[in-house]
Amino acid sequence: MESLLNVQNLVTSFRTADGKLPAVRGVSFSVQEGETLCIVGESGCGKSITTLSVMGLLPDNGEISEGSITFQGEELTHKKEEEMRKHRGNDISMIFQEPMTALNPVFTVGYQMMEPLHLHTKLNKKEKKSRAVELLTQVGLSDAEKVLKKYPHELSGGMRQRVMIAIALACNPSLLIADEPTTALDVTIQAQILDLIDDLKRDLGMGVVMVTHDMGVVAEVADRVMVMYAGHVVETGTVEEIFENPKHPYTKGLLASVPNVDDEEHSLEAIPGSLPNLNEKISGCRFHPRCPFATEKCKEEDPPRFQISNQHQSKCWLHEEATTNESRHEAYS
């Protein structure tokens, strides 16, 4: 089956004064219809840049230097700006992190709701309005007529995020990209918004790519998880595999740094050190300076991806033997 979105070996780099710096270094993933993929990682590991590359909305000095992005079988990387514009907001939509700043303060919610409809459909004013009301009701805002006439500053953060979701859904996209949609919200509102995205995904059959650094969010919504570190995908797997059987030391570190309220004895284990800079040259595995299990080999050679199970992959030398052993087992049987 052909997947909805397929990213192969994506390299996104930025032109800076020090030359070209790759922020995303060969990322591959795919999203099926009706599936939620969570991209997890520390701030600055290339999560957002990956999603912006898919949208074709990289900053002026960024460019996709290698790899391919296919959406519904169409290659996006070579598309002209005009053609990309027809996809954006229509087939592929995006929700942003800060609902406080992602709505234009000088226009009413209604005006902004009609923007995507104006851009991608030929509905007349009345139809647009009824569609806007329908959408706002769909995202759980009661009294939609009233909300349409309000300005963003008159709405609460949760309401604004709902409006953002409604705007993103206006043209029934088949892929929704959510860039930390709940980071700026209260925990209670967070749960509501996540439920909402989940429900809408089921109802509309969308694929969802959710970028987050919150493991709690991942556990709640993800079908599959992709862990990124310093521009690389270090581990991918289904949500059960990642949470119950994390393989990569970085994933283990991430999970260990999630507070556990049930266990009073539990002390948080932070991953020592910090994310390397884009221009830092690190030989071998980019995680080895912070890795408690680093060996000589890690310092010298960049590990390939090792298959652990059908969907579970880890980019760590530790699993070299495991896989080779397993493949040997397979060969024997």
Partner: peptide
Amino acid sequence: KQEYILAMRSLGASNTRILMKHVLPN
């Protein structure tokens, strides 16, 4: 630099439209 301009681009608005309808009023 505001996020709503990026949001508008993510909806597929053209540069002209963003400039005239969203940047100028601000």
